[in-house]
Structure formats: structure tokens, C-alpha cells
Design a protein around this nucleic acid. Structure first.
Lengths: 221, 221
DNA sequence: CCGGATCCCCAGGGATACTG
DNA sequence: CAGTATCCCTGGGGATCCGG
């Protein structure tokens, strides 16, 4: 990227990660851990192969990512974040919280992947009752399964399924996301097509991680 | 900007502010308050007038900024941030903290403005001794004056001069910034051309605002 | 002088095809 | 699978010009 030529840490940061797709590549590596080229390509629907290739080269040169050869059974190269790359997490988190305000808009053609929903829960929600016992929620959105665990004040999540969850919810991504972030109550979510089975009371423990951003209306205006 | 087409709050956020110059425009309005076209242009050295014009139009449409007609004596239009625009502050702050690691590199041609240094102090530094009495520092870097006040755990700053500061420091931007962020000690800063007069002991109260980013080496490698 | 609009040119991004 | 190569087109940089 062409430099902004300004002695300002925001501008210099953008000199490095301001290019198109760059922050999303970091997002993928942050969420998925070390990835193969094809994993990244799948996690970034819409990116052109040459662009991904060139971005990876630039990011490696900037020492945000490093290539490593995977152990024998796989025998391919893996791309992983360096310390500098991982240090972008707070910035991505803040941007993700800000971007929540645009998640209400329904764009049917948008791609959707399970791990995006997973980080949505883990990064963007807080447990309001840290003293309460841990609970497990089996989430499914657009057919993609995610497990959310509320444990001692923290909200954690991963892609996949679990046995005997305290609660199961299923529905379109927008409604499920609103429910997980505490921005939608169950009534509202059910109107948007969510079905819930089990201890629906645990949902009241979830509140949006604020950064004093204030709540956002996830229902389309 | 062309949409990434991903149902992810980071991607949707970048759909709005991911274009070149956009975040820097928000930075200016955040630091300077409502601005005229020319003020923005001066605060964004390097931007082409047509780009600024088109970005302002897009940002207004996205409801991040609003135009208002200034009161009679000025009689020009002012651009100011809306609530959504101001909500970007945490993201810009996080990015600015991350970008600090690139502030060590010396690029003689980079532009430098006083208010960038001012936010550098206020956003990126913390007072380690909130109980201690308030102190005032008169800073000057590259001829541009900034006042930094350490008051009850908070670090505040503004462009300009004050009377009877507890400490005066003067030197090249890189060294002054390192000193204000607690990343450089006085000895190191003096080697980079800083001169200090007054209560140099108050500098020990400044520490970098972490976001667990860890300290950064501001001296060139 | 302020607040842009217009024009031209080039670099960077998108789509697809091709190769080790 | 992991990229490269190619072509095309849009979007950004830079200068100039114009109305208020």
C-alpha cells in the first residue's frame, strides 16, 4: 500500500493493514489459527487467488504472519500469525463491535460461516452473572453448528456440536446473533424465525460487550 | 466501497470505513471537532480534493458525519461526526496503539501535526500514580506546541501553550512521543535530541496504555 | 480564499484460466 | 493443492479549473 506519509500511529498502522482484504486475512488467522492457503481462501469468500497470494507475501514481509512447513502427514505450508499479528486482536475486536450496528441489515447474498458467529458470541457478549454455574448452549444458524459456553463471567465458543446442552437454539444468522449478544429478547428472536428448546432463562445472562458503544438495534428498521 | 459480502461484523464495518482515507477523516473529526473542508484538507496532507469530497459524501450517506451550516460570522459548512461516527473512537484508539510499533522508524518526509502528538499522549499513555498532584507539561516537537496535563489518573492534552508548566520538553517528534508514552527514558530521549527543563521526575508517571499490547521499542533497530 | 468539479493517467483489485 | 499469469476495469493520485 502506498504510505499516507503521516507521522501518526493510526496512519502508520493503516500503512500496514489498510489494504483491502488485509484485516480480514488477519481475522481468519486469529479465529482459525494457522491455515493453509485453501483454508484461507475458503474463509474469505470473494477474494481472488492472486490477491490472497500477494497479501500473504506482504504480510509476511511486514512480519505479521509467518510461513511454516506443516509436519509430515500434511506436508504443506501453513500461515500463522506472529506476535505483531496477534496484537491486532484488540483493534479487530473494537471494529467488530462497532460493525455490529450493520448486522441488522438483511443481505440475502452475504456469505456466512460458523466461526464468524462463534467469535461474535465470544468477543461481543458478556456474562452478567459470573457467580452462576456454567451453562452450555448448542447454537445452529443457517445449518452451521456452534457451541457457546458461559463460564464464570466469560463467554467462550467454538464451531461444532456438544452433548446435552442446557439450551438449543436454531434459526437464521441475524436472529441468532441478536439473541447471543443480548440485543434481542426471545420473543423478538422467535418473530425472526428462531426456535429454542431448553433452559431459555440462561439467555438473560448475555449482554453486549459495550466499549461504551451503546446497544444497537438488530431488527431492521 | 465494494462490499465484502460476508455476514460478519468486521467485514460489514469495513464495508463502511475500509476505503482509503476514510478512517483518517474520522480521526481528524474526532481530534479536531467539526471542521471545514479546508481544515480537513490541511489535516490530511496528501489527500486529493476530489477524494475528500467524495469521501465526505459517502460518509454523510452512511450517517457517520453530518453537514451543518456554521453561524453567520463564518458562513461556511462544517462537517461533524454523528453518534455512529464518534462510536469509532475505541476502534481508532486500538489501531493507534497497535500502530505505535511503527513510530520508531524514521521517515524524514512524513508530515507531522501537533494534534497527532496530542492524541498520542492522551490516548496512549496512562498515569501510574493517580493520587499524586496534577502536573502540567509544555511539550514542543518540531516547533509545534502541545500541553499535556496529568490529572488524577488521566492524561489529557491539547494543542497550544500554557504558563508556568512543571516541565518543558522539546525535541524531534519521535523522541518526544517516546518520552510521553513512557517507552523511552530521559537518557534515551536526550540521546535522540530532546532537551528537558524542570521537574523531569514527573515523566516516570507515564506508562503506555497497554491493551495487553506490550511495550514497543521506539528506538530504531 | 473557500468548496468543490473535471480530466487524465496509472496502480491496484477482480475474474478466470493455467501450471508445477 | 498451492499458487502464477493474464486481462480488464475500477478507483485513487495529481493537476487544473470554476463558481460563490
Amino acid at each position: 500500500m502506498r504510505s499516507y506519509g503521516q507521522y501518526c500511529s493510526i496512519a502508520r498502522g493503516l500503512d500496514v493493514v489498510g489494504d483491502r482484504w488485509t484485516l480480514l486475512i488477519v481475522r481468519e488467522l486469529l479465529l482459525q489459527g494457522p491455515c493453509r492457503f485453501t483454508d484461507l481462501r475458503n474463509g474469505l469468500p470473494g477474494i481472488a487467488a492472486n490477491l490472497l497470494s500477494s497479501r500473504l507475501r506482504e504480510l509476511e514481509q511486514a512480519e505479521l504472519i509467518s510461513r511454516e512447513d506443516a509436519p509430515p502427514p500434511v506436508a504443506t505450508t501453513l500461515y500463522g500469525l506472529t506476535e505483531s499479528g496477534r496484537a491486532l486482536e484488540p483493534a479487530l475486536k473494537a471494529l467488530g463491535i462497532w460493525g455490529l450496528r450493520y448486522m441488522a441489515e438483511d443481505r440475502p447474498d452475504d456469505a456466512f460461516q460458523a466461526h464468524w458467529l462463534a467469535y461474535g458470541a465470544a468477543w461481543l457478549a458478556t456474562d452478567t452473572d459470573p457467580e452462576a454455574p456454567p451453562v452450555t448452549i448448542q447454537v445452529q444458524a443457517d445449518g452451521k453448528p456452534v457451541v457457546v459456553e458461559i463460564v464464570g463471567g466469560r463467554v467462550e465458543s467454538r464451531v461444532g456440536r456438544t452433548e446435552d446442552p442446557d439450551l438449543e437454539i436454531d434459526g437464521p444468522p441475524r436472529a441468532v446473533l441478536g439473541l447471543l449478544n443480548g440485543l434481542l429478547d426471545l420473543d423478538g428472536a422467535e418473530k425472526l424465525g428462531v426456535s429454542a428448546r431448553g433452559r431459555t432463562d440462561v439467555l438473560s445472562r448475555l449482554r453486549p460487550a459495550s466499549t461504551e458503544a451503546g446497544p444497537v438495534d438488530l431488527v431492521e428498521r
